[in-house]
Amino acid sequence: MIRPIFKFPGANMASTTSKPTSPLAVITAVIGAALIGVLFYLRSIEVGWYVLLALIAAYLVAAFFVLRRDGGFGGVSNPKDFYTGILLLGACGVFAAGLVELPLGRVARPGPGFFPLMLLSLLFIFSIAILINGLRTKGEALTPVPWRGLIIITGMTVFFGATIKGLGFIPAIVVTAFVSCLATRHWTLVSAFATAAILAVFSWAIFIWGLGLPIALCGSWLRALLISLGVAGESIPFCY
């Protein structure tokens, strides 16, 4: 029995105790990663891809039967790990779709697809292991998502990217800052206006006046609008 070096007082501290890990998940990961290594070695002595694929398939089938014999899936008992596994498998799928068209090359002259293929295989093995962990260990349920904040913050970031060229520096900042203020429920109209105004002046002072970034203060859309309305002529200060 090894005594922990010290325990953290207070519950809000990060914990050093490792998360519950299913032995089967560890074994899956270790054997799987070792298999990738062996495959890589076999490939380096020029064994055909079909042999390698057959080996992977055999491994997966074996893993499945071990899992069945070993008590099977106990339902999603550790959602955090389970969904991590699912998401990582999705990422594997995306990368696999991109990998298909890449030439692998030979081992003595690895092509653009060689290293990514090794990484992808490893990620696949780890995703499966994490998935198994999600099914076989107990974990905490997911906590609610702050949808309001999430949508507003990401939305405004996308908005800034989409409008910085068209609206220009100052309008994009004012809108981004103002709407971002609404991400929390504790917002007030006054503080939102004040924040937007202060940020506009502050960012102008640092980024345009201080650092001299080449960003138009008001963008091409506004310029076109002002000209078509007849408010201003062709040359508007700070518009380009």
């Binding site: 970031t157 981004t176 103002f178 924040t195 960012s203």
Partner: peptide
């Protein structure tokens, strides 16, 4: 604070 962080990140 956070509206400022968002804005500065963007810029």
């Amino acid at each position: 604070l956070f509206p400022g962080i968002v804005t500065i990140c963007c810029i």
